[in-house]
Amino acid sequence: MKSKLNLRKVYLTILMLFFYLPILYMIIFSFNSSKSLTKFTGFSLEWYESLFTNSTMIEAIYYTIIIAVIATVVSTIVGTLACIGLSKSRKILKRFVEQVNQLPILNPEIVTAIGLMLFFASLNIEKGFLTLLLSHIVFCIPYVMLSVAPRIRKLDPNLLDAAMDLGASPSYALVKVIVPQLMPGIIAGALIAFTMSFDDFVISYFVTGNGVNNISIMVYTMSKRVNPTINALSTLIVVTIAMVMFVYYIFDKKSKVEKK
Protein backbone atom coordinates (compact mmCIF):
# COMPACT_ATOMS: atom_id res chain seq x y z
CA MET A 1 0.00 0.00 0.00
CA LYS A 2 2.84 2.36 0.84
CA SER A 3 4.49 2.02 -2.57
CA LYS A 4 1.15 2.55 -4.27
CA LEU A 5 0.73 5.83 -2.46
CA ASN A 6 4.15 6.99 -3.56
CA LEU A 7 3.52 6.12 -7.18
CA ARG A 8 0.44 8.29 -7.09
CA LYS A 9 2.33 11.18 -5.52
CA VAL A 10 5.25 10.91 -7.93
CA TYR A 11 2.95 10.79 -10.92
CA LEU A 12 0.89 13.80 -9.90
CA THR A 13 4.01 15.76 -8.95
CA ILE A 14 5.55 15.16 -12.38
CA LEU A 15 2.29 16.19 -13.99
CA MET A 16 2.20 19.43 -12.01
CA LEU A 17 5.81 20.12 -12.97
CA PHE A 18 4.82 19.58 -16.59
CA PHE A 19 2.05 22.13 -16.21
CA TYR A 20 3.90 24.74 -14.24
CA LEU A 21 7.57 24.61 -15.26
CA PRO A 22 6.98 26.31 -18.63
CA ILE A 23 5.04 29.08 -16.89
CA LEU A 24 7.75 29.46 -14.27
CA TYR A 25 10.38 29.49 -17.01
CA MET A 26 8.53 32.25 -18.79
CA ILE A 27 8.31 34.32 -15.62
CA ILE A 28 12.02 33.94 -14.91
CA PHE A 29 13.03 34.95 -18.41
CA SER A 30 10.81 37.99 -18.36
CA PHE A 31 13.39 39.40 -15.93
CA ASN A 32 16.35 38.49 -18.12
CA SER A 33 18.72 41.32 -18.98
CA SER A 34 19.45 40.07 -22.48
CA LYS A 35 17.25 39.14 -25.40
CA SER A 36 18.12 35.47 -25.06
CA LEU A 37 15.34 33.05 -24.18
CA THR A 38 17.84 30.38 -23.20
CA LYS A 39 20.63 32.02 -21.17
CA PHE A 40 19.86 34.01 -18.06
CA THR A 41 22.36 36.85 -18.05
CA GLY A 42 21.12 38.91 -15.14
CA PHE A 43 18.12 40.56 -13.58
CA SER A 44 16.49 43.52 -15.25
CA LEU A 45 13.11 45.13 -15.76
CA GLU A 46 13.98 46.08 -19.31
CA TRP A 47 11.15 44.09 -20.91
CA TYR A 48 8.53 45.49 -18.60
CA GLU A 49 9.76 48.95 -19.48
CA SER A 50 9.57 48.24 -23.19
CA LEU A 51 6.12 46.77 -22.64
CA PHE A 52 4.80 49.96 -21.13
CA THR A 53 6.48 52.23 -23.64
CA ASN A 54 5.21 50.24 -26.61
CA SER A 55 2.05 52.00 -27.72
CA THR A 56 0.73 49.15 -29.91
CA MET A 57 1.06 46.85 -26.92
CA ILE A 58 -0.84 49.22 -24.63
CA GLU A 59 -3.48 49.55 -27.31
CA ALA A 60 -3.82 45.76 -27.61
CA ILE A 61 -4.27 45.45 -23.84
CA TYR A 62 -6.85 48.22 -23.95
CA TYR A 63 -8.81 46.58 -26.78
CA THR A 64 -8.66 43.17 -25.11
CA ILE A 65 -10.13 44.50 -21.87
CA ILE A 66 -12.73 46.81 -23.38
CA ILE A 67 -13.98 44.12 -25.80
CA ALA A 68 -14.07 41.50 -23.05
CA VAL A 69 -16.07 43.81 -20.77
CA ILE A 70 -18.62 44.89 -23.38
CA ALA A 71 -18.96 41.36 -24.81
CA THR A 72 -19.46 39.95 -21.31
CA VAL A 73 -22.14 42.47 -20.35
CA VAL A 74 -24.04 42.18 -23.64
CA SER A 75 -23.81 38.42 -23.94
CA THR A 76 -24.80 37.89 -20.31
CA ILE A 77 -27.91 40.05 -20.63
CA VAL A 78 -28.94 38.75 -24.05
CA GLY A 79 -28.11 35.16 -23.15
CA THR A 80 -30.06 35.27 -19.87
CA LEU A 81 -33.14 36.86 -21.45
CA ALA A 82 -33.04 34.44 -24.36
CA CYS A 83 -32.76 31.56 -21.93
CA ILE A 84 -35.76 32.73 -19.91
CA GLY A 85 -37.76 33.26 -23.08
CA LEU A 86 -36.72 29.88 -24.42
CA SER A 87 -38.04 28.06 -21.36
CA LYS A 88 -41.53 29.43 -22.12
CA SER A 89 -41.54 29.02 -25.86
CA ARG A 90 -42.75 26.34 -28.22
CA LYS A 91 -40.83 23.11 -28.76
CA ILE A 92 -39.87 23.82 -32.38
CA LEU A 93 -38.31 27.15 -31.47
CA LYS A 94 -36.55 25.57 -28.54
CA ARG A 95 -35.03 22.84 -30.67
CA PHE A 96 -34.01 25.32 -33.35
CA VAL A 97 -32.18 27.59 -30.89
CA GLU A 98 -30.56 24.67 -29.10
CA GLN A 99 -29.28 23.20 -32.36
CA VAL A 100 -27.96 26.46 -33.76
CA ASN A 101 -26.36 27.31 -30.41
CA GLN A 102 -24.36 24.09 -30.69
CA LEU A 103 -22.74 25.26 -33.92
CA PRO A 104 -20.15 27.65 -32.46
CA ILE A 105 -19.46 25.23 -29.60
CA LEU A 106 -19.07 22.04 -31.62
CA ASN A 107 -17.54 23.54 -34.73
CA PRO A 108 -13.79 24.12 -34.76
CA GLU A 109 -13.15 27.76 -33.91
CA ILE A 110 -11.52 28.35 -37.26
CA VAL A 111 -14.76 27.46 -39.06
CA THR A 112 -16.77 29.94 -36.98
CA ALA A 113 -14.02 32.46 -37.63
CA ILE A 114 -14.00 32.24 -41.41
CA GLY A 115 -17.81 32.12 -41.47
CA LEU A 116 -17.93 35.46 -39.68
CA MET A 117 -15.14 36.83 -41.85
CA LEU A 118 -17.06 35.93 -45.03
CA PHE A 119 -20.23 37.34 -43.51
CA PHE A 120 -18.73 40.74 -42.70
CA ALA A 121 -17.00 40.87 -46.06
CA SER A 122 -20.18 40.13 -47.99
CA LEU A 123 -21.98 42.93 -46.16
CA ASN A 124 -19.05 45.24 -46.86
CA ILE A 125 -18.54 45.92 -43.17
CA GLU A 126 -14.98 47.03 -42.66
CA LYS A 127 -13.01 44.76 -40.35
CA GLY A 128 -12.11 46.44 -37.09
CA PHE A 129 -13.44 47.16 -33.63
CA LEU A 130 -17.10 46.60 -34.50
CA THR A 131 -16.57 43.24 -36.24
CA LEU A 132 -14.33 42.08 -33.42
CA LEU A 133 -16.88 43.04 -30.77
CA LEU A 134 -19.83 41.50 -32.65
CA SER A 135 -17.94 38.25 -33.15
CA HIS A 136 -17.03 38.04 -29.48
CA ILE A 137 -20.68 38.53 -28.51
CA VAL A 138 -21.63 35.82 -31.02
CA PHE A 139 -19.41 33.14 -29.53
CA CYS A 140 -19.96 34.18 -25.88
CA ILE A 141 -23.77 33.97 -25.77
CA PRO A 142 -24.06 30.16 -26.18
CA TYR A 143 -21.73 29.66 -23.20
CA VAL A 144 -23.80 32.01 -21.05
CA MET A 145 -26.95 30.14 -22.04
CA LEU A 146 -25.32 26.81 -21.26
CA SER A 147 -24.65 27.88 -17.70
CA VAL A 148 -27.98 29.66 -17.13
CA ALA A 149 -30.22 26.93 -18.60
CA PRO A 150 -29.76 24.33 -15.79
CA ARG A 151 -30.78 26.98 -13.25
CA ILE A 152 -33.97 27.74 -15.15
CA ARG A 153 -34.88 24.09 -15.27
CA LYS A 154 -34.63 23.98 -11.47
CA LEU A 155 -36.83 27.06 -11.10
CA ASP A 156 -40.21 26.59 -9.48
CA PRO A 157 -42.78 27.31 -12.22
CA ASN A 158 -45.23 28.70 -9.66
CA LEU A 159 -42.79 31.39 -8.61
CA LEU A 160 -43.67 33.69 -11.47
CA ASP A 161 -47.41 33.17 -11.03
CA ALA A 162 -47.11 33.93 -7.36
CA ALA A 163 -45.26 37.16 -8.05
CA MET A 164 -47.82 38.29 -10.61
CA ASP A 165 -50.75 37.30 -8.40
CA LEU A 166 -49.28 39.51 -5.75
CA GLY A 167 -49.41 42.37 -8.19
CA ALA A 168 -45.95 42.44 -9.73
CA SER A 169 -45.75 43.59 -13.32
CA PRO A 170 -44.06 41.09 -15.67
CA SER A 171 -40.87 43.14 -15.92
CA TYR A 172 -40.80 43.68 -12.14
CA ALA A 173 -41.28 39.95 -11.57
CA LEU A 174 -38.50 39.25 -14.03
CA VAL A 175 -35.97 41.55 -12.41
CA LYS A 176 -36.92 41.03 -8.77
CA VAL A 177 -37.97 37.38 -8.70
CA ILE A 178 -36.61 35.39 -11.62
CA VAL A 179 -33.19 36.95 -12.16
CA PRO A 180 -32.08 36.73 -8.49
CA GLN A 181 -32.95 33.01 -8.55
CA LEU A 182 -30.73 32.54 -11.59
CA MET A 183 -27.84 34.63 -10.23
CA PRO A 184 -25.28 31.84 -9.64
CA GLY A 185 -25.75 30.61 -13.21
CA ILE A 186 -25.59 34.13 -14.59
CA ILE A 187 -22.38 34.92 -12.73
CA ALA A 188 -20.76 31.67 -13.83
CA GLY A 189 -21.83 32.39 -17.40
CA ALA A 190 -20.42 35.91 -17.25
CA LEU A 191 -17.09 34.58 -15.94
CA ILE A 192 -16.88 32.02 -18.75
CA ALA A 193 -17.79 34.69 -21.31
CA PHE A 194 -15.11 37.01 -19.97
CA THR A 195 -12.33 34.43 -20.08
CA MET A 196 -13.43 33.19 -23.52
CA SER A 197 -13.32 36.71 -24.87
CA PHE A 198 -10.11 37.67 -23.07
CA ASP A 199 -8.23 34.61 -24.35
CA ASP A 200 -9.67 34.37 -27.82
CA PHE A 201 -7.22 34.21 -30.65
CA VAL A 202 -8.56 32.26 -33.62
CA ILE A 203 -11.81 34.13 -34.19
CA SER A 204 -10.29 37.53 -33.41
CA TYR A 205 -7.43 36.87 -35.81
CA PHE A 206 -9.78 36.38 -38.75
CA VAL A 207 -12.34 39.10 -38.07
CA THR A 208 -10.23 42.03 -36.99
CA GLY A 209 -8.40 44.58 -39.07
CA ASN A 210 -7.47 48.22 -39.28
CA GLY A 211 -4.81 47.86 -36.60
CA VAL A 212 -7.27 46.76 -33.93
CA ASN A 213 -5.46 43.89 -32.20
CA ASN A 214 -5.90 42.04 -28.96
CA ILE A 215 -3.23 40.52 -26.74
CA SER A 216 -3.41 37.08 -28.40
CA ILE A 217 -2.87 38.51 -31.85
CA MET A 218 0.09 40.52 -30.54
CA VAL A 219 1.63 37.37 -29.07
CA TYR A 220 1.10 35.55 -32.35
CA THR A 221 2.67 38.23 -34.52
CA MET A 222 5.49 38.94 -32.08
CA SER A 223 6.47 35.34 -31.51
CA LYS A 224 7.79 35.09 -35.05
CA ARG A 225 10.85 36.92 -33.73
CA VAL A 226 12.55 36.44 -30.38
CA ASN A 227 10.91 38.98 -28.16
CA PRO A 228 11.03 38.74 -24.36
CA THR A 229 8.41 41.49 -24.11
CA ILE A 230 5.89 38.68 -24.62
CA ASN A 231 7.24 37.03 -21.48
CA ALA A 232 6.78 40.23 -19.54
CA LEU A 233 3.24 40.62 -20.79
CA SER A 234 2.45 36.95 -20.13
CA THR A 235 3.87 37.22 -16.62
CA LEU A 236 1.60 40.15 -15.89
CA ILE A 237 -1.39 38.16 -17.17
CA VAL A 238 -0.44 35.13 -15.06
CA VAL A 239 0.01 37.27 -11.95
CA THR A 240 -3.34 38.99 -12.55
CA ILE A 241 -5.15 35.68 -13.00
CA ALA A 242 -3.46 34.24 -9.90
CA MET A 243 -4.54 37.27 -7.88
CA VAL A 244 -8.12 37.12 -9.13
CA MET A 245 -8.26 33.42 -8.31
CA PHE A 246 -6.83 34.04 -4.87
CA VAL A 247 -9.38 36.74 -4.09
CA TYR A 248 -12.15 34.54 -5.46
CA TYR A 249 -10.95 31.62 -3.33
CA ILE A 250 -10.89 33.71 -0.15
CA PHE A 251 -14.28 35.21 -0.98
CA ASP A 252 -15.71 31.79 -1.73
CA LYS A 253 -14.39 30.37 1.52
CA LYS A 254 -15.79 33.26 3.52
CA SER A 255 -19.24 32.97 1.99
CA LYS A 256 -19.21 29.24 2.67
CA VAL A 257 -18.25 29.79 6.29
CA GLU A 258 -21.00 32.37 6.67
CA LYS A 259 -23.56 29.99 5.23
CA LYS A 260 -22.60 27.38 7.77
Binding site: V78, L81, A82, I84, G85, L86, S87, K88, S89, R90, L93, F96, V97, V100, N101, L103, P104, N107, V111, T112, I114, G115, L116, L118, F119, S122, L134, V138, I141, L160, P170, L174
Partner: peptide
Protein backbone atom coordinates in the same frame (compact mmCIF):
# COMPACT_ATOMS: atom_id res chain seq x y z
CA UNK B 1 -45.10 37.46 -22.61
CA UNK B 2 -41.80 35.94 -21.60
CA UNK B 3 -41.58 33.69 -24.61
CA UNK B 4 -41.23 36.84 -26.67
CA UNK B 5 -37.88 37.47 -25.00
CA UNK B 6 -36.30 34.82 -27.18
CA UNK B 7 -37.40 36.32 -30.51
CA UNK B 8 -34.59 38.87 -30.81
CA UNK B 9 -32.14 36.09 -30.14
CA UNK B 10 -33.63 33.89 -32.86
CA UNK B 11 -33.09 36.75 -35.30
CA UNK B 12 -29.58 37.23 -33.92
CA UNK B 13 -28.44 33.64 -34.35
CA UNK B 14 -30.03 33.43 -37.77
CA UNK B 15 -27.92 36.40 -38.84
CA UNK B 16 -24.69 35.77 -36.99
CA UNK B 17 -24.51 31.99 -36.71
CA UNK B 18 -26.57 30.44 -39.49
CA UNK B 19 -25.84 32.92 -42.27
CA UNK B 20 -22.03 32.65 -41.86
CA UNK B 21 -22.24 28.85 -42.02
CA UNK B 22 -24.35 29.02 -45.17
CA UNK B 23 -21.86 31.48 -46.64
CA UNK B 24 -19.05 28.96 -46.18
Amino acid sequence: LFSRLVHPYVVWISIFVLAPMLLI
